[in-house]
Amino acid sequence: MSASIVFHGLAAIAYAVLALSLWLPIQKYQRSPKLDRTFRAGLLAAIIIHGTGLLLTIILPHGLHIGWALALSAGLWLGMVVFWFESLYLRLDSLLLILLPTAALVSLIATLFPEGIVVHHANSEWLRVHLLIALCAYGLAGVAAMHAILITVLDRQLHRPVQAAGQQNTWYRALDSMPPLMVQEDLLFRLIRIAFFVLTLTVI
């Protein structure tokens, strides 16, 4: 329980600091955030801290500790991991404007609500694997659903009249800096395929 609070708290702080470093330039009318090596190293460290907290909290010697906040946290962590690998060959930096504040909020929620239930009969390795795979599948499906909502918002943004630079608010500039819709749709379908594949593993 204490590991969940400590690691999720550290992850929330790390995500919040990284998010702030991206949103401040947007407020100063700088369009697309550009990530340097220092930022990417910090992001990777935050993801590792977040994942370590989940690992130490969910997998126990006598079973599995599962709660709604932990499930939400695991889903967002998987989303961050997918983003990390996708960003190695796609320009998705602007998505962090949405991902980082969301990850910080979810990590904070997991810090404040670490309660859950312990599945005592999960001492079987196969049962543990089954439950963890199912958790990953539903987490990825949840991330895909949130991404679909973002695509809908971006589509509406494209159909609005273009505002003059002086009239654009921070949210407008953030959405305007997002990757093209075609790239977003490719990422969405890739998430759905991965989630479907992982979910299929639960019935094997």
Rank of each mutant, 00 (worst) to 15 (best):
L135V: 01
Q157L: 03
V162D: 08
N169C: 12
V162Q: 12
H147Q: 06
L135K: 01
G142M: 06
W171F: 15
H159E: 14
Y138I: 10
W171M: 14
N169E: 12
Q167Y: 09
T152P: 00
A148I: 04
V162L: 11
G166T: 08
G166A: 09
T152L: 14
T152M: 07
P161Y: 00
Q163F: 11
A144D: 00
C136F: 04
G166Y: 10
A164T: 12
G139S: 02
I133T: 15
A148R: 01
Q167M: 13
R160C: 03
A141V: 03
Y138R: 07
L140S: 07
Q168H: 13
I149F: 09
Q163E: 15
A164M: 13
Q163W: 13
H147N: 04
L150T: 11
I149D: 04
A174C: 12
R173K: 07
A165N: 11
T152R: 11
L154I: 04
L154N: 02
G142C: 03
A148S: 13
A137V: 05
A134K: 07
V162E: 12
G139V: 00
Q167S: 15
A137L: 06
A134Q: 12
L135H: 01
V143M: 05
Q168V: 07
H159K: 10
A144E: 01
D155Y: 13
N169D: 15
Q168I: 04
A137M: 05
R156I: 04
A145N: 04
D155A: 12
R156H: 14
V143F: 08
A134D: 14
M146S: 13
Q157I: 03
V143D: 01
Y138P: 00
A141Y: 08
M146W: 14
A137F: 03
D155E: 13
A164L: 13
I133N: 05
I149K: 01
R160D: 10
A137N: 00
A134T: 12
A145Q: 05
Q157D: 11
H159P: 01
A164V: 09
A134I: 08
D155I: 14
H159I: 07
G142F: 07
L135G: 01
V153F: 12
R173E: 03
L140K: 00
R156E: 11
A148N: 05
V143P: 00
H147R: 12
G139W: 05
Q163D: 08
Q167V: 05
Q168G: 04
M146C: 11
A165E: 15
A145D: 03
L150C: 03
A148K: 02
R156G: 15
P161M: 01
Y172L: 10
D155G: 07
I151Y: 01
R156L: 12
H159T: 10
A145S: 08
R173L: 08
N169Q: 14
R156N: 15
I151P: 04
C136G: 06
A134V: 07
A141R: 04
L135Q: 02
